[in-house]
Amino acid sequence: MELAISVIAGFMILGAIYAIHARDLLSAVIACGIVGYSLVICFLLLKAPDLAIVQIVVETITLIIMVAVVLDSSREEAYGKFDRRAWITAGTAVAILFALFWFMWMASADLSPLGDDTLRMANAYIDGAVESTGSVNLVTGVVFDFRGYDTLGEATVLVTAVLGVLTILRIRGRKG
């Protein structure tokens, strides 16, 4: 199981690297789709069917939005010359990455191996959840019953985002 997930995660990393370095923006967006759809397979392997369904829908919508934006433009990645400022940025990035890598190295001692034990918190959600929520799908039980206010907040965020998108796309700029 861990091998399969590692292989797919490797593909995701390759797709992400290609997406960052592609010259054509359309190929970059489609390479981003590789990452998203590989994540769907990972969710299926990790026994999370609800997540896989949601992710496949969301990824498709995201891809459509991104392709619409990119097709509306010149699609060219603006490559300037690799000057001193670009070197400074790249150096900063590598320094930050190494710092984070060191933190992960220290934190990895506390991580339990994959698939070893459940979090203590989860037992309260698993035991007797069917009787108290009436839902045989435990994820639905958590989302709509134990964490109902969380879901309400999520819906609020979604509505706010839709209103924001409508507002941004409808206003007219000063120069048209």
Partner: peptide, 30 residues
């Protein structure tokens, strides 16, 4: 059973991720 709690949280996070991405793309196209 697989732990349902992280799955429920990721479910929320995926939808919010869609909202932020749509917002970002709207700003970018403007």
């Amino acid at each position: 059973y697989v732990d349902p709690l992280p799955q429920a949280m990721v479910l929320t996070a995926i939808v919010i991720g869609l909202a932020t991405t749509a917002m970002l793309m709207a700003v970018i196209i403007r």
